[in-house]
Structure formats: C-alpha cells, structure tokens
Design a binder for these strands. Structure first.
Length: 202
DNA sequence: AGGACGATTAACT
DNA sequence: GTTAATCGTCCTG
C-alpha cells in the first residue's frame, strides 16, 4: 500500500489523467478497504490553458469560487462536487497552485470491498463502478471527501501505485456530458480509457 | 429573489 | 431514441 506522491499529481492534468489508468483508488469505509483500479479518466484544464468545460475556468471569470477553491490549491487534494441534484463526482487536483486543474475519475474495475459496494445499491458487478456517480456511491464518497489530501497518510481516501498501462492500450476521445460547452473544448480528446476494459462507462 | 443549468443515471417509448 | 429526478451554485436584476 504505497500512496502516489504529490509529485505525481503536480503535473499537467492530461499527463496525470493518462498515468492514473491502472492505479488503485481506495476508500476506507467502516474500517474496510473499498476500491478498484482506475480504467477511465478525464482531464480538466492544464496550467495556463483555457478550458471552458472546467468549472474553474467557467465560473467567476476564471477566479476561484466557494465551490472551486480547492481546484486552485495544491495538487494531490480531492475535489468532490454535487450535481444534477443527486450525484457526487470525485476529482483529483493536479498541476500548479493558482490554476484550476483536475482529473475526473469516471470508472474503476472493482477489486476490493465489493460487498460494501453492493450495500449502497445492489447491481451486477459490471455496473458497480462504471460511471463517475456510480463509483462515488460504491466508495461512499460525498461532501465529507472534498478537500482531502490524498498524499497525507491519515486521509480516508487515496490512490496507490499500480500498473503502468502501455501506450497502445490507451484510447482517447472527447469528454462526456459537456452539454453547452463551446468548441474547441467540446470535442478536444481529453478523455482517457483502457482499450477493451469492460468497466469503462461507455 | 428568481431562474437556468448541470463533468449523471435510470427508466421509459 | 427521450425524459424525469432533484438541488446547489452561479448569474442577473
């Protein structure tokens, strides 16, 4: 159980998003390890780049708001937000402090604590963590997980070192669910996933 | 004070 | 393929 160091996160979001594939996200739930291997991610903003799909760039003319403040802070912290009136999304802050960068975790291959995952809602194993809101439910991620330091040994959620996925197994495409986001950000291929993995959201 | 909208999901036709 | 669910955040006035 070796946590990824802050230097892993302190890089451009696109690189972190790609390198997170194959790493294990773990959340402690009632004293038990619950988690899985990351199979799908999306990058939001890179340092000094515009990205009108990114909460940090879209709101308040690119300045921090109450919700997005953590995104402007140091890398290796969680950014968890609530959307559609019912869903939590888990992200990790990347890049340099002062810029809003983050990676959204969109899907996991469930590996540990599947009974705990099923406790929130019984589903087929293939559907426990194959989407950003579903994996948050499976790992019991909510507002209490916003702004936690994943590099701090005492935090209840973290990412462990794991596989390095070979370049030819990584696929890219446009990010999902961007709605009214204008081009070019609507189509820019900042979504990453492991080719052929059955736990990818789509 | 009020309205638009959302980094989604499930349940429809 | 379409749409309801459901409410915090942000923007306008």
């Amino acid at each position: 159980m070796k946590r990824l160091p802050r230097s892993f996160y302190g890089r451009p979001a696109r690189l972190v998003a790609k390198d997170l594939l194959g790493k294990r996200l773990v959340s402690m739930v009632d004293g038990r390890r619950v988690g899985g291997d990351i199979v799908e991610t999306e990058a939001y903003c890179d340092t000094e780049e515009r990205d009108l799909a990114c909460h940090g760039d879209r709101a308040n003319e690119g300045r921090p708001t109450l919700r997005t403040a953590v995104m402007f802070g140091p890398p290796g912290f969680s950014y968890v937000y609530f959307t559609y009136g019912m869903h939590w999304m888990f992200n990790i802050v990347t890049g340099d402090p002062g810029y809003a960068n983050a990676v959204l975790i969109r899907a996991l291959e469930p590996m540990e604590g599947l009974e705990t995952m099923r406790a929130f809602r019984a589903r087929p194993d293939l559907e426990l963590t194959n989407g950003p809101a579903k994996l948050a439910q499976a790992l019991t991620i909510d507002q209490a997980h916003n702004g936690l330091d994943l590099c701090e040994p005492e935090s209840s959620i973290w990412i462990e070192d794991g596989l390095v996925i070979e370049e030819d197994k990584i696929r890219t495409g446009p990010r999902i669910g961007l709605g009214k986001t204008p081009e070019p950000w609507l189509s820019i291929p900042w979504r990453y996933w492991i080719d052929g993995n059955p736990y990818v959201s789509r």
